[in-house]
Design a protein around this nucleic acid. Structure first.
Lengths: 223, 223
DNA sequence: TGTACATCAGTGAACGCGCGTTCACTGATGTAC
DNA sequence: TGTACATCAGTGAACGCGCGTTCACTGATGTAC
């Protein structure tokens, strides 16, 4: 494996790492102007390269956008997976951590997030994108399954898929409406994390889970 | 009040109803290409008018977009309000109807919906847009308040604002992820309406509401 | 180790295009008298 | 009812711009012998 250059131009004719540099430049543009506001030409410019150069690495603008979304889903999966940590130290705590990780990703990597969810890329034409997206969702689903397995006996168990879809929708809704850094975000009388956590607790209670086990703090006094 | 023309060109020099015609043309473009994909020039063209004409009615492209979002919020409020129908025939039924109306609006008027929520218009610079948006949200909030008033005694009552935010987020999340007609929408093993209704039922149960009162059908046999 | 050559990732100039916006203008409409 | 005039909503030509994309090219790198 040969990286040619070293990530910097250094005056050489070959960039060496242009593909990654273009992705980073595009992410920066998306963060500032949204997925529709980034241009191939400007990405090339800020990577310090001629406008024709990107075509060595991406068929066209849309392919670059799809690459970013794909990479985003992979990192998203990794982030959720790390937060889930296979249910350690206990399932409820890990579950709440996943919710927090969801919002954290949407906020801290919101260029990725909007390439993933707001770029209008047709999933039908991007099977590998769909797969990456489903892999990330699979974490939510696995976590839901483990949680459901804890359900007190006698309570009818909801389908894990449905539960995962509810959690996903609530998280995505909160992230979209309140969880961006930018000016189109709405004001809230609490943090998005608090809103999500409260919502999930109420939802879980509705499913018949005992409330106490799911609070963040150990048994502590309930207020 | 004088409408000059009659909504059609009819060979006359003055269009007569250009402002509305431009909004309709823009809605059509947004529906097909997203809020970032519509252009002032093309809207003018499809209204059958020269590219300079729109400037008689809108300062610039963004003002047209903001007008659409504003109109969208007003229609959204009207739709939610009609669905709510001041809680008739009973609060729980009306509440579920509001959820359905939310999804119906997002699907049937998704050009409006994306101008409202996905155009990236900064709410800070558009106070009247913010007001219109809050008016629509106020319906959700009023409905939540009425529902909470029904809470069985002894159960701690959640803040109506928080409840309304949860319902809004869940609805918006479902609408964004699964509720558009287009190709960027994800597949679901159930309808968005069913997903939302089930989620809301579980949530309400979590708040301590007795489940039966909230089913769509009258007392009927529970399956 | 040296040389010839193939491959590859860049250049830079050029293209046609559609955009947003401006300008002086003009035709149609409304109004004062 | 008629006429003069102000107002208004459109025209159409023009501008500068940045975009996506193409092309023949060239410099650097890797490799066969």
């Amino acid at each position: 494996m040969n990286w040619h250059g070293h990530g910097r131009r250094g005056g050489s004719y070959h960039h060496g790492n242009l593909k990654e540099a273009l992705i980073e430049a595009a992410l920066d543009l998306i963060a500032r102007k949204g997925p529709a506001g980034f241009t191939f030409a400007e990405a090339a410019r800020s990577a310090g390269v001629s406008p024709a150069a990107p075509y060595r690495h991406f068929r066209d603008r849309e392919e670059l956008l799809a690459s970013i979304a794909q990479q985003g889903f992979e990192q998203f999966e990794a982030a959720l997976s790390a937060a889930w940590d296979d249910g350690r130290p206990d399932t409820p705590a890990a579950f709440q951590r996943v919710g927090k990780a969801y919002l954290a990703f949407a906020r801290d990597h919101h260029a990725y997030y909007s390439a993933m969810f707001e770029s209008g890329l047709p999933l039908e034409n991007n099977p590998s994108l769909l797969v990456a997206s489903e892999r990330a969702f699979a974490i939510l689903r696995a976590a839901s399954e483990r949680l459901i397995a804890l359900a007190p006996p006698g309570v009818p168990r909801p389908p894990a898929l449905m539960m995962a879809l509810h959690i996903w929708s609530l998280s995505h809704g909160i992230a979209s409406l309140f969880g961006r850094g930018d000016a189109s975000s709405r004001k809230l009388p609490m943090s998005p994390e608090e809103l999500l956590e409260a919502g999930v607790l109420i939802y879980l209670k509705g499913l018949g889970f005992p409330t106490e086990r799911f609070a963040q703090e150990p048994p502590a006094a309930k207020k």
